[in-house]
Design a protein around this nucleic acid. Structure first.
Length: 510
RNA sequence: GCGCCCUUAGCUCAGUUGGCAGAGCAGCUGACUCUUAAUCAGCGGGUCCGGGGUUCGAAUCCCUGAGGGCGCACCA
């Protein structure tokens, strides 16, 4: 049982005294922050405030409590001679840290100089039956602060309840998404919705989550790995500027910058190429940073990141050359030597394109700190991109990289339907060569759509979670995703059946 | 998937060489009408992550399972 027996008992006793513990509503006049911000105007005036009980300092016939709400905290003073006996009894023995309370009273300042509410009445808005680990704090120090990273993620309501900074992170995330919308809406983009469940998946190189549709006799279906192909159908259909903000699902690794389910922004703009979109990305991100963080220069860990345009622009081959690796002038054999010389594990299958991409990831990517566009990637890996003008080995693609993290991906989108078909075929044979044997399905309907005529288009994807990480100084994707994926806890019922399931799976596997 | 580490009261953590399970905060009882990590006096609180083993004796050592953290691999 998740409930605390002592608190359950207390709840029963209070209910038996005809006290309302879970009322239907409560009229609040100000948030705690509003009271603080309007101190002068509200001085000696009546207010009705509500919040969670965060601290209780009893001094016999006079009690001070602290209430907290979304973004504020306020002291409340209660005096015995100003309450009925029954309510005073509730105040003395019925309150626990975590309870939601409604206070009506007068704004004043204590002799110690603290802005407070002198309570005239107190009402219980929600009696807790779980011990909420409210920390004590003074200045910048905290005591007994919930610290177990597992609990913080699994029981996020406790994290939010006990840590204002964790709540603030969610507020910042919402603001960032809101500012992105208003930026794109302001430039004439249409926000559209694309399917989460698809009969065919595509738009990225990733293993999908597979499911089954009962209504279609168990026909297999997939969770979207990218909204790219549906969005391009919008372009074909005559919408020149579209975007979506959606969850993508990739059945792959989980670590500090990867969650199986993550939020993606993608937009497509007809009649533009990747050069145009580079300008647009730096404008979007710098604008959002300024609106949400108050400046284009932000702090991340012990570094300062400057999002002020223009950002540095480089290429895969150019950045390798800067690092003393002339990959552009090397053939496959020379690249193989380079891997040996630098003791880097070579990609498999080994080819010029994979070798170049691999060298960049191993040697360059993590060293990039300030916002940088890395352009012109090897062709074979990116089947949805136009070839680089003047170099058939490359495609017109860029990735904005900040603090070693890819925060996006953009193309001059491939619009020649016949070349698209050829690239899909080439990608399939490439997939068959890999040890995973991962094979992407051919989306012939998408080819038909492109065959109907797709205007020149620049497309951009931005990983919202990673952008939020940067703008909120978060160093794990779990800090900015409200409910990150966690393994379920098993064998909570006890018993000695712990070993059996493992044996079963081993048998099935062999 | 591989390696290393962690799991003790509601929370944060001690726990020596294998020898009665500990502290602070929270909680309970009492005192206190301007406190603010309130203070003071007293009290209660445990599946030491689960299961098995070694031992006269296990939080501690061994095996095994679960969950978590970090690193590696995977992930354009």
């Amino acid at each position: 049982m998740p409930f605390d027996p002592e608190l359950l008992k207390k709840r029963e006793e209070l209910l038996a005294r005809n006290l309302e513990l879970y009322p239907y509503s409560w009229e609040r006049s100000h948030t705690l922050l509003e009271v603080r911000e309007n101190e002068k105007k509200l001085m000696d005036k009546d207010v009705r405030v509500a919040g969670r009980l965060l601290a209780y300092r009893g001094k016999g016939k006079m009690i001070f409590i602290d209430l907290g709400d979304l973004d504020g905290r306020m002291q409340v003073m209660l005096r015995k001679n100003e309450f009925d006996e029954g309510i005073w009894e509730l105040i003395r023995h019925g309150l626990d840290l975590g309870d939601w309370l409604g206070i009506s009273g007068t704004v004043f300042v204590t002799r110690m100089g603290e802005l407070s509410v002198h309570a005239k009445s107190l009402e219980m808005l929600a009696k807790t039956v779980v011990r909420v680990p409210i920390p004590k704090s003074k200045d910048d120090q905290d005591w007994n602060k919930l610290a177990d990273p597992e609990t913080l993620c699994r029981e996020r309501y406790l994290h939010w309840t006990t840590d204002p900074a964790a709540r603030q992170k969610m507020v910042q995330r919402a603001r960032i998404i809101s500012e992105i919308r208003s930026f794109l809406d302001g430039r004439g983009f249409l926000e559209v919705t694309t399917p989460t469940i698809e009969m065919n998946y595509g738009g990225a190189e990733a293993r999908p989550f597979e499911t089954a549709i009962h209504a279609l006799s168990g026909h297999s279906a997939f969770l979207r790995i990218s909204p790219e192909l549906p969005l391009k159908r919008f372009i074909v259909g005559g919408f020149p500027r579209v975007y979506t903000i959606c969850q993508n699902f990739r059945n792959e690794g989980i670590d500090r910058s990867h969650n199986p389910e993550f939020t993606m922004l993608e937009w497509y703009e007809a009649f533009t190429d990747y050069n145009f979109q580079m300008d647009q990305v730096e404008q979007l991100v710098s604008c959002v940073a300024e609106k949400v963080c108050g400046s284009m220069k932000i702090v991340y860990g012990d570094k300062e990141i400057d999002f002020t345009p223009p950002w540095k622009r480089t290429t895969i081959l150019g950045s390798l050359e800067e690092a003393g690796i002339d990959a552009g002038g090397m053939d496959e054999a020379a690249l193989r030597e380079e891997y040996k010389k630098r003791d880097i594990e070579p990609p498999r299958p080994f080819s010029w394109v994979h070798a170049v991409a691999g060298l960049f990831e191993a040697r360059i990517e993590h060293t990039i700190e300030q916002p940088t566009f890395v352009c012109d990637h090897p062709v074979a890996i990116y089947p949805l991109t136009k070839k680089k003008r003047g170099d058939d080995r490359l495609v017109e693609r860029f990735e904005p990289i900040v603090m070693g993290m890819e925060i996006g991906n953009a193309y001059s989108e491939l619009t020649d339907p016949v070349e698209q078909q050829e690239r899909f075929v080439a990608q399939q044979s490439l997939g068959a060569d890999k040890d995973g044997g991962e094979n992407h399905p051919m989306d012939t309907d998408f080819l038909k759509a492109m065959g109907c005529g797709m205007p020149p288009t620049g497309g951009v994807g931005v990983g919202i979670d990673r952008l939020v990480m940067l703008l909120t100084d978060s160093h794990s994707i779990r800090e900015v995703i409200a409910f990150p994926l966690m393994r379920t806890r098993e064998a909570e019922n006890g018993g000695d059946d712990g070993a059996d399931p493992a044996e079963d799976t081993e048998e099935q596997a062999s």
